[in-house]
Amino acid sequence: MSTEKKRNKKKNRTIMRSVILLLLVAAIGYTIYNSVTADEVEVLKVGDPAPDFTLTDLDGETHKLSDYKGQGVFLNFWGTWCEPCIKEMPAMANQYEVYEDQGVQILAVNIAQSNFEVETFARQYGLNFPIVIDRDKSVMTAYNIRPLPTTMLVNPQGEIQRIVTGEMTEQDIAGFMEEIKPE
């Protein structure tokens, strides 16, 4: 065998082996990546389009997320049993007064509670934004909400700008609304 042929064979061998190894390592890497990220709350990721939904508020009015395109939507999932949810509600109401005119909409999604509980709560805290009830938890499931409160910040393009889990201060809320406010 000539030396050139030999060198070619060696080169081919190295390429072949590198390709096989690379493929296998890539498959394993992808599997590990998937298993590590699978457990996290955010199956929806920042930048994903926010799943559309339609829910009815306490006044019987229907709210469809896609109808708010062009506005920022502050989508807050909550329940009356959740302490931090209750605490951030008045702050949300305050900031809503500031940002409503600037094109930021709050939708508070209650998780499958009764009309009575939600109405009483809204009256007691003087809440000025629409509260919708997710009676069969389908929106909660679509957004894969685990801990409460979770707030999805949807930008005017209808994409998820930020996912916040846990209690927010009034300062946080103002900052987030600033983020999703239309230009």
Partner: peptide, 15 residues
């Protein structure tokens, strides 16, 4: 079964 090193080992076994 979801720890990265266990999956890594299974992957090495496959290799």
């Amino acid at each position: 079964y979801n720890s990265f090193w266990f999956i890594g080992l299974v992957g090495m076994l496959a290799i």
